[in-house]
Design a protein around this nucleic acid. Structure first.
Lengths: 218, 218
DNA sequence: GTCTATAGAACGATAGAC
DNA sequence: GTCTATCGTTCTATAGAC
């Protein structure tokens, strides 16, 4: 039976995408354990069994979501960094530019997600703080290489710092990013409703300035 | 200190404490949704029904744990801050001292926890990134007043900054703290195993230095 | 490919004996 | 206060009709 409701071609991919999109939304709200397949399929307006048909299991669905969201982001980060290295060669890329390259793709939210999809930043914030076991290997799989490239360039930009100092401060920089990205609502609570947690451009700018100053410590 | 090892009096309090302690351990590992009462009672070596007898429900158990861990920490923060304000009066407390006062109680891990209890910092890291609904009011209940006191003193210490600037940078400071506190393991991954994620003294020092520099931005 | 129906397991909570 | 036993619910995953 290949007769869906509106479109006649590639129904399967459309269902797959609808499921992925719904997974992003539901996962961002409550994390992996709180996310049920019933909730996802209800949100995606597909049948419960479709998840297991397209993804095999809840865990595989989760892995597919992460790949779908992390890989484009990280590819863009890598590409932008290489562009900057070329542009400044043979000089090192300034620290502010390096961190802008690291942070901006998160906030502008590229990826395969459709337009009015759940904000990418919320999905990533949740993923980075996810306690589930399967997340242990997440850093290795998605961030080990990337971290090394960025720390290498930071080292070129700050040759006076020891590798240990760079590692500590890079860790703290990423910590700030993660803490910022988890819940922008906290900004509204802290400011008693005066600052807008959804003003991502402004937050990105403040984050970069803060981290660069913290890194340089002078 | 009324119950040494195998005392026969006030068994109930002992059971209560065992449950609380086990809850801290299990919660720190996987968060609220992943924590099951069966896991907690197995860990505490008490009966499953004991939880509902002593705490009524899983949610109440969670609330009791948070109160048990957050309140002593926040009281110490408040007390230390007031001490510093007195000590420096009428001058404002230096920014480094303010942030040390905010961060240190987290890392030294005071509280009602017994000695070889789960590291307080892990419980708090998990709680601060917990997606569950009941956490929405958490900031209000435990941190609203505290944040205001600290921002007030920061404002005295940095009178040249606008309230908006202070709010943004305080938000970023707390973000760094949270990101640091979630998983110290990330430090080991970033440094390729060369830095120790359990060296809390060192991390506290680096965190404070980083945040103060990021805050002052000069 | 998509559905209904359900198996099989785990959970929170409670009743009632001791 | 503490236990066993169990109820009612919800979950993932799958079998089988269409």
């Amino acid at each position: 039976m290949k007769t869906p409701k509106k479109d006649e071609r590639s129904v399967s991919d459309k269902t797959r995408q609808k499921i992925l999109s719904a997974t992003g939304k539901v996962f961002a709200q409550g994390g992996y354990r709180a996310m049920t397949l019933r909730q996802v399929t209800r949100e995606a307006k597909v049948n419960l069994a479709a998840v297991n048909y397209h993804f095999g299991s809840k865990l595989n669905l989760m892995r597919a979501l992460l790949r779908d969201r992390f890989e484009p982001i990280n590819q863009q980060r890598q590409r932008l960094l290489n562009q900057q290295i070329e542009a400044y060669a043979p000089d090192p890329v300034p620290l502010t530019t390096i961190y802008d390259t690291l942070f901006r793709p998160l906030f502008t939210g590229i990826g395969s997600a459709s337009v009015n999809d759940t904000s990418l930043i919320q999905i990533i914030g949740r993923a980075l703080t996810e306690p589930a076991e399967f997340m242990r290997g997440l850093h290795k799989e998605f961030f080990a290489d990337l971290s090394k490239c960025f720390m290498d360039e930071i080292h070129r930009s700050c040759p006076e710092l020891s590798p240990e100092q760079i590692q500590y401060r890079f860790f703290l920089s990423v910590s700030t990013m993660i803490g910022t990205v988890i819940e922008q609502v906290r900004l509204e609570t802290i400011s008693d409703g005066k600052l807008d947690g959804k003003n991502l451009d402004k937050i990105l700018h403040e984050l970069t300035t803060f981290v660069v100053a913290g890194f340089q410590q002078r």
